[in-house]
């Protein structure tokens, strides 16, 4: 966390509205990308990003240590997204079903679009676990706590997600070569 960020948080905590605008401008890309990675829906990602900033605005006064801002922000993003996902999928999906990967043909897109497309094809359980690990940098134990599942499940989800991602990407690349 940079010195600028720390000062910014301090100023926001003293009630400086202008500093909150600066925070919104600096963190919107990160918040949106994380939310989009978890939800894979642009319009939902926009709504949830907005919700995340409102939550920050309401509760930044309760943040004890400004150095913990990043992990606090990540917690807000993750929990808001998981709540949204729970509303989308009220019934739990059996692990056997999670192994099914969409067989649709990959579009002829560039590398970034290809990986985004591949991510979209993963089931929400695999995707959220992988995003928490790869993008937000949580440890397996932290992910287990966030998702409320055993560490063993996190291990297998991450590993299977990577295998599926690798498979989808290689299929997509093969189709692209044709």
């Amino acid at each position: 966390m940079t010195e600028f960020d720390l000062k910014l948080i301090e100023r926001i905590r003293t009630g400086d509205e202008q500093s909150f605008t600066v925070l919104v401008k600096s963190y919107t890309p990160y918040v949106y990308r994380t939310v989009f990675a978890l939800l894979q829906d642009r319009s939902e990602a926009e709504d949830v990003s907005q919700e995340v900033f409102i939550k920050i605005y309401r509760s930044i006064g309760q943040l004890g240590n400004p150095h913990a801002f990043h992990s606090w922000l990540n917690k807000i993003i993750t929990h808001t997204c998981l709540d949204r996902l729970k509303k989308q999928y009220p019934t739990p999906i059996a692990d056997s079903e999670l192994d099914i990967v969409s067989q649709e043909t990959s579009q002829q897109l560039d590398q970034h679009l290809l990986i985004r497309d591949a991510l979209q094809r993963l089931s929400s359980e695999y995707r959220e676990t992988l995003v928490l690990r790869e993008w937000q940098g949580y440890s397996y134990e932290e992910i287990a706590n966030i998702l409320g599942v055993p560490v063993g499940t996190v291990k297998s989800r991450i590993h299977t997600a990577r295998l599926q991602l690798r498979k989808i990407l290689s299929e997509g690349e093969r189709e692209k070569e044709w």
Binding site: R33, F36, A37, H112, I115, R116, L119, L130, E134, L165
Partner: peptide, 8 residues
Amino acid sequence: FQRSLENS
């Protein structure tokens, strides 16, 4: 994965 998200 990381690069793709950074560029989205």
